[in-house]
Computed example of a mutant assay.
Amino acid sequence: MSYYVYILYSDAISRYYIGSTQDLDNRITEHNSGETKSIKHGIPWRIVWSQKFETKSDAIKMEIKIKKRGAKRFLLEQIA
């Protein structure tokens, strides 16, 4: 089974959210339906980046790397 790391952005609060999941479409739906209480104040969230991984371990390593660096900085490095 594949795993995904993703970055969401909320225009409403001008913030990024970084996460990982096995079902990317379902997870984004959960975020935008308010099921994730910690970020429901930012609805609507839109996906700005995602990457697929073969193992959960690899996905978590990338998620941690992005969180340490910061989503905005990480994204700027991707386009440079």
Results as ranks from 00 to 15, higher is better:
Thr55Leu: 01
Ser33Ile: 11
Lys72Gln: 11
Tyr3Trp: 05
Tyr4Cys: 05
Ala80Gly: 15
Ile7His: 01
Ser57Asn: 11
Ile28Val: 11
Lys37Glu: 10
Asp58Val: 00
Lys67Asn: 06
Tyr3Ile: 04
Tyr9Asp: 02
Glu63Tyr: 01
Pro44Phe: 07
Ser50His: 14
His31Trp: 03
Lys61Cys: 09
Ile66Trp: 00
Gly42Asn: 02
Ser2Tyr: 12
Ala71Ile: 02
Asp23Ser: 14
Glu35Val: 11
Tyr6Gly: 10
Arg46Ala: 11
Ile79Asn: 11
Met1Pro: 15
Ser2Glu: 15
Ser57Thr: 15
Lys40His: 13
Ile79Met: 15
Asn32Lys: 01
Val48Ile: 14
Ile7Asp: 04
Asp58Cys: 04
Met1Phe: 10
Tyr6Leu: 14
Glu77Thr: 00
Gly34Ala: 09
Ser20Ala: 07
Gly70Tyr: 03
Glu54Tyr: 09
Val5Ala: 00
Gly34Lys: 08
Ala59Asn: 02
Glu63Gln: 06
Arg27Tyr: 02
Ser50Lys: 12
Tyr3Gln: 03
Arg27Ser: 05
Gly34Arg: 07
Ile28Asp: 03
Lys61Asn: 10
Ser2Gly: 08
Val48His: 07
Tyr3Met: 05
Gln78Arg: 12
Lys52Tyr: 04
Arg27Asp: 03
Gly34Glu: 12
Asp11Ala: 14
His41Phe: 10
Arg15Asn: 15
Tyr6Met: 12
Ser33Glu: 12
Asn32Thr: 03
Ser50Ala: 10
Phe74Pro: 02
Arg69Gln: 13
Lys67Gln: 01
Leu76Arg: 15
Tyr4Phe: 03
Lys65His: 04
Glu35Pro: 11
Asn32Asp: 13
Ala12Trp: 14
Asn26His: 14
Gly70Asp: 03
Phe74Ser: 01
Phe53Val: 04
Asp58Glu: 07
Gly70Gln: 04
Lys37Asp: 15
Ile18Asn: 04
Phe53Ala: 00
Arg69His: 13
Ser10Arg: 11
Leu24Tyr: 02
Lys72Pro: 15
Gln22Pro: 12
Tyr17Gln: 09
Arg15Phe: 09
Glu54Lys: 08
Lys61His: 07
Tyr6His: 04
Ile66Met: 01
Leu24Pro: 07
Asp58Ser: 07
Lys61Thr: 08
Trp49Met: 08
Lys37Trp: 09
Tyr9Trp: 09
Ile13Arg: 05
Thr21Val: 06
Thr36Phe: 07
Glu63Ala: 05
Ser10Trp: 11
Tyr17Thr: 02
Asp58Tyr: 05
Tyr16Trp: 06
Glu35Ser: 14
Tyr4Leu: 05
Ile7Val: 08
Pro44Gly: 08
Ser20Thr: 05
Lys65Asn: 10
Val5Cys: 01
Trp49Ala: 08
Val5Ser: 02
Ile60Asn: 05
Ile47Gln: 11
Ser33Gln: 13
